[in-house]
C-alpha cells in the first residue's frame, strides 16, 4: 500500500518519467532545435562566448609548442617562429585572439554580478570592479611584455 493511494501504483503500460513514479500523464518534452541560437543576436553572442573555450584550449596547446621549441634549442625556436608566421596559423591566431578578447570583455562585465565586493561595510559599485579588472589586465600585460623583451 502506497502512502498517496492508488494513483501512484505501478501498472503495466503506464509511462514512467525518468527517475520518477509512474503516472497516467505523458510528459511534454519540446524539441529544441540545434540551431536555436542563430535566431537572436543575444543568443548568438552567448554561444560565441561559450565557444571561446575552444580557442583558450588552442592557445594553451600553441604556447606549449613554443615552450617545447625553446627547450629544444635555438634552431627549433626559429622553426617555431617560421611555422607561426605561416598564413593558416596566423589566421587561426587572429580568430582565436578575437574570441579570447570576447571572453575577457564578457568576463569582466559579468564579475560584479557574480560577486558582491564589500569594503568597510559598503558594496563596491560594479563600475569600480570592472575598472579594477581592466587595470589588472594592463598591469599583467605590461609585466609580460617587460619580462619577455627586456
Amino acid at each position: 500500500m502506497t502512502r498517496s493511494g492508488g494513483a501512484t501504483t505501478p501498472s503495466r503500460g503506464t509511462p514512467t518519467p525518468s527517475g520518477g513514479t509512474p503516472t497516467g500523464l505523458r510528459l511534454y518534452r519540446p524539441r529544441v532545435s540545434t540551431w536555436w541560437w542563430t535566431r537572436k543576436r543575444s543568443y548568438l553572442v552567448f554561444v560565441m562566448r561559450e565557444l571561446s573555450s575552444v580557442f583558450v584550449a588552442w592557445f594553451v596547446v600553441y604556447l606549449l609548442f613554443l615552450v617545447h621549441a625553446v627547450g629544444r634549442g635555438e634552431a627549433a625556436y626559429l622553426r617555431f617562429l617560421d611555422w607561426a608566421a605561416s598564413p593558416w596559423v596566423t589566421l587561426l591566431n587572429v580568430v582565436a585572439l578575437a574570441f579570447v578578447l570576447l571572453h575577457a570583455v564578457t568576463w569582466f562585465a559579468l564579475t560584479p554580478q557574480a560577486m558582491a565586493v564589500r569594503v568597510a561595510g559598503r558594496t563596491v559599485p560594479p563600475v569600480h570592479i570592472i575598472a579594477g579588472q581592466y587595470t589588472g589586465l594592463v598591469v599583467v600585460s605590461g609585466f609580460v611584455l617587460w619580462l619577455v623583451t627586456r
Partner: peptide, 9 residues
C-alpha cells in the same frame, strides 16, 4: 584567460 592570455596570445 581574461587577464594573462591576451598579452601572451
Amino acid at each position: 584567460a581574461a587577464v594573462l592570455l591576451p598579452s601572451l596570445a
